[in-house]
Amino acid sequence: MAQNPQTPPALFDRALLHMRQRRARVQGPASFLLDRVDEDMADRLAAVMREFGAIADLWTPGEGLSALRARFGTVQRIELDAAGEEKLPLAPESLDLVASALALQFVNDLPGVIAQIRRALKPDGLLLAAMIGGDSLTELRQAFAAAEAECEGGVSPRVAPFADLRDIGALLQRAGFALPVTDVDRIVVRYANAFALMQDLRRMGAANVLIERRRTPTRRATMLRMAEIYAERFADPDGRIRATFDIIWLSGWAPHASQQQPLKPGSAKASLAEAVRKAGKT
């Protein structure tokens, strides 16, 4: 069957993502990124001077967002299911707040999911989310590419492509959100070596889930060369390597008459040309 041209190509095996996230919860997750986002989520919500009734936590891994439960008590958790479905079980205009942490980077149809969230929000409802993006894991990506090119004569997909800040802002606007805001929190984590970083990624349930990932085990020589290249290019003077994580924060409101509105074209009380003329006379 031919693929619907309106449907974006699938990049992620979300069923595999579900399995790995469940395994990470059993084995003991590496939660330092999620803990930081959870704390920042609490701070950002504290700055919003209003209460929210119906709230959903969308696909946040692990135990979800404790900041939401601590402040609001009752929160609807929407967990990633075994099939990795991206159709949200949300009625139109049923929620006051949708929050999500470290989940949207693994969505195949991100524009579609953001549009679904917009439809599920009541007027003046808020989307507040954090996702991995930007230059995250650029060091690991470069080290793997160089090692595979040198040892195997080709490069395979290792690190997921991440959205940048401008992409996310444009998606919010396209979905019809009012007052869209995006910003980036860059976190640099240091490790003893590349293998320690990869172990943490497995404990996050965030190892390679690309559909086009390599299905055969990587040669030992390639892995060792990758670790050498990583250390050569991205180590501090004490020998520890750096790993970059860019957390993209995004927020937007379902439109409501009470919100600030931009001025209509031609409604300004003074023209730019007149202001320039006056400035030239001073």
Rank of each mutant, 00 (worst) to 15 (best):
M1S: 13
P5L: 11
P8C: 11
P8R: 11
P9G: 09
R23D: 06
F32R: 13
F32Y: 12
D35Q: 09
D35P: 00
E39D: 05
L45S: 09
L45W: 00
V48T: 07
V48D: 07
E63G: 11
R69V: 13
R71L: 03
F72V: 06
R77T: 11
P92S: 10
E93F: 03
E93K: 12
L95Q: 03
A101L: 09
F106N: 14
V107Y: 00
N108V: 06
I117V: 15
R119H: 04
D124L: 02
D124K: 10
G125P: 01
A130G: 10
S136Q: 03
L137R: 01
A143R: 01
A146Y: 04
A147G: 06
A149R: 15
G153Y: 02
S156R: 13
S156N: 13
F162G: 08
L171Y: 10
A178P: 00
Y191T: 07
A206L: 05
A207L: 02
L210I: 04
E212T: 13
T216N: 05
L224A: 12
E232K: 10
A235F: 00
D236T: 12
D238N: 12
W249R: 05
L250M: 15
A257T: 11
A268V: 11
L272F: 11
A279T: 07
G280P: 02
K281N: 14
T282G: 15
T282L: 15
